[in-house]
Amino acid sequence: MTEPLLDIKDLYVQFEVYGGRLEVLDGVNFRVGTGEKIGLVGETGCGKTTTMKAILRILPEPPAVIPRGEITFKGRDVLKMNSAELSKVRGRGISMIFQDPTAALNPVFTIGQQFEPVIRYSSPQNRRLSRREIREKAIVSLQEVALADPERLLDSYPLQLSGGMRQRVCIGMALATHPELLIADEPGTSLDVTIQDQVLRLLRELVEEKHTSVILITHTLGVVRETADRVYVMYAGNMVEVAPTPKLFANPLHPYTQGLMQAVPKLTGGGVAHGIPGRIPDYLSPPSGCRFHTRCPHVMDICRREKPPFFSVDGGHQVACFLYDKSPEARRDEAVAA
């Protein structure tokens, strides 16, 4: 692979709380190539949003602490940037669509008032534009996300819009900066299914048109299948598997990924969805070794002791599970066990 656009290496994020530290991210490795569309799946609370917020340095620090790791965007470590450098990355480098559009819009400012600084500070040229010119750009952005009557929308407050409209406004805002990388955190989850579908379709078209790199976070495997080039599967603060989308769906390797696939109800074949027994571990005292070992049907001794690294299986398919350890020592252990 050529130089990746975004490269996260061994990232740890912890939260200081009463009674200890929540060890949320536990050595995350994650890459996005230029122009790539990445899907990120995993159950609620597994650290997807935390990872994304860490990239933009918008985790509240404190309580969040980043003791270790590297987040390289276009060759520079975001974690080492000062606020001036950071402000160049935010918006025009990477921008983000939040899960809940209602919470992501400030309730006491009009859409126009919120659009203005986003456009103004997205490039040095824009800083010199007049209000009128900024407004024109905002109108274009709103038209791109297929919102009617943008003039009136700009003078409206978020509470005057429907949920779907708010989500479109958020997408419009996130794309108004012409980012190189767009993070879409479960866009439309808070909306009903048809609107959600429309929003995702729109998002797909827009990033296709603008050749934007995308990280799409979602619970819905179907959405990933349609959108992403590669998929990362995350469990309890670790990336457990990554593969090109067709490979992952054809041949899920990690026991957690397999469980996730079985948990999807199928329309054909009358299959019943199977959940994965147990729940995401407590981050205050996470399980030793592989964090999935408490729920894993194939658990081995080593899983309780050691944290599995990524094992390459074939052509970009990697999995963090000792079942796929093909090193000489592992084979010897197998032989001994047999």
Binding site: K53, I58, R92, A103, A104, N106, Q114, Y121, S122, M173
Partner: peptide
Amino acid sequence: NLSKDYIAAGRALGVPERL
């Protein structure tokens, strides 16, 4: 309010901290 999403969103979209 500092922990509200709209604050994080403002930062994420490159709005200067002073605003």
